[in-house]
Design a binder for these strands. Structure first.
Lengths: 218, 218
DNA sequence: CGCCTGGATGGCACGTTGTGTCATCCAGGC
DNA sequence: GCCTGGATGACACAACGTGCCATCCAGGCG
């Protein structure tokens, strides 16, 4: 709890260590899940690999499977951030496209980290196919994303937009993102493939929704 | 008890008993969850209320929370069934609307059962708000619905429809159904309210998606 | 510098979850 | 009546997740 006015210069040493251990746990959890399946890994195994006690593990994450959420939410956070910072003259659809490209295309100083996060996401999605509990984490992440998307879209839309319609738009945009990731994870393309990468797929999904949902004829 | 001659029971006695106990477990689970929250109920408690052993409980359901899935999937099953039986001359949007009305409007010989299922769904959704594990069940049910929706929509669409687009349409239709239920559960209207009932809301959601997602301007 | 306080951690105990295994019981067919 | 497959119950057990307390360390105070 920092009640400091102004931008905090540096998170205290303790804070940094906490963030570091959380990330460490998440990394090992994802690696173990991808290798042996979530059912084949114990919480104690993750804790040992991360160098913490079992008790500490459960102070960071409520369940064994949720340990991977930091890796899954990384791209989403950036997506929301870019979307919230979109210029006002863009249409909602354009803003969504740009933000998606920015969030799913490994670029900038953290390109390596982003590509790594995408790869581990793919590994987790594949492991989630055979593991209901792990799959639920994926669903939960997107449920929270959908919720977080509502006020952001509200900011980008006319102020008299029907709240229900706003929520539907959030669900649709989120579904596009989710399905793009799932489709990409099922394939072979690398995270920076210009044609079959996640960014390209996500844009296709967004356009498919805004154009094609009002399905033509029977 | 002796089987009644005449009124032919196609499924054997054993089969009927299994279906009965499953339903019994689900009913008691939903009731207990709605009353005390999922976290405040033990699997043993549900088993005792349903009159089975704990071991038997876990033969029917993999987890404590999944015990309520039969109640949540009831409406969905009917939705898919009606959709699959839609006349070919209807557009996809019209078919979706009709099927939704049929599935969410208590009617016919089982109107009471349907209304009861809707009510328990509402209770469960409210309990799920404060319980991640229970909420995950809701999400999982809809994830499976989305998957099941793909081939059904494929049947209603042109045969050269892009599979990705099909999947997006399934996700959108499913999201409309889900959000309608969540919105209804958060309100006060009864299950057969003609204006604010689930059926009416679902139709509004479907139309909002097919018309409004291609959101206009900022 | 030594003291103290708050927060993070580890160890332990415990109730609960979920599964493997075996014995029992009953419906349905010979 | 007998037999058999499937459903159930009882027990044991690993793993999950939490409450509780002792310990340790960063950072502020005299």
């Amino acid at each position: 709890m920092t009640t400091r006015p102004g931008a905090a210069a540096r998170p205290s040493l303790t804070e940094r260590r906490k963030a570091e251990t959380e990330r460490e746990i998440a990394r090992h959890a994802a690696e173990l899940f991808s290798a042996h399946g979530a059912a084949g890994v114990t919480a104690e195994g993750i804790a040992q690999a991360a160098g913490v006690s079992l008790r500490t593990f459960y102070r960071y994450f409520r369940t064994k499977e949720e340990a991977v959420t930091p890796l899954l939410t990384g791209g989403v956070r950036q997506w929301l951030a870019e979307l919230a910072a979109a210029p006002a003259e863009l249409s909602v659809a354009e803003a969504l496209e740009r933000a998606v490209r920015g969030a799913l295309t490994p670029q900038g100083p953290h390109a390596d980290l982003q590509a790594e996060a995408l790869e581990s996401t793919r590994g987790l999605l594949r492991a989630a196919g055979g593991d209901p509990a792990l799959h639920s984490v994926w669903l939960r992440v997107h449920a929270e994303t959908e919720e977080a998307l509502v006020p952001v879209l509200g900011q980008l839309s006319r102020q008299d937009t029907d709240p229900l319609e706003l929520r539907l738009a959030a669900a649709a945009a989120n579904a596009a993102m989710r399905i793009a990731m799932e489709t990409w994870a099922a394939g072979e393309a690398g995270p920076d493939d210009p044609a079959r990468g996640p960014a390209s797929l996500a844009v296709r999904c967004l356009r498919g929704l805004t154009a094609g949902v009002r399905t033509p004829r029977a």
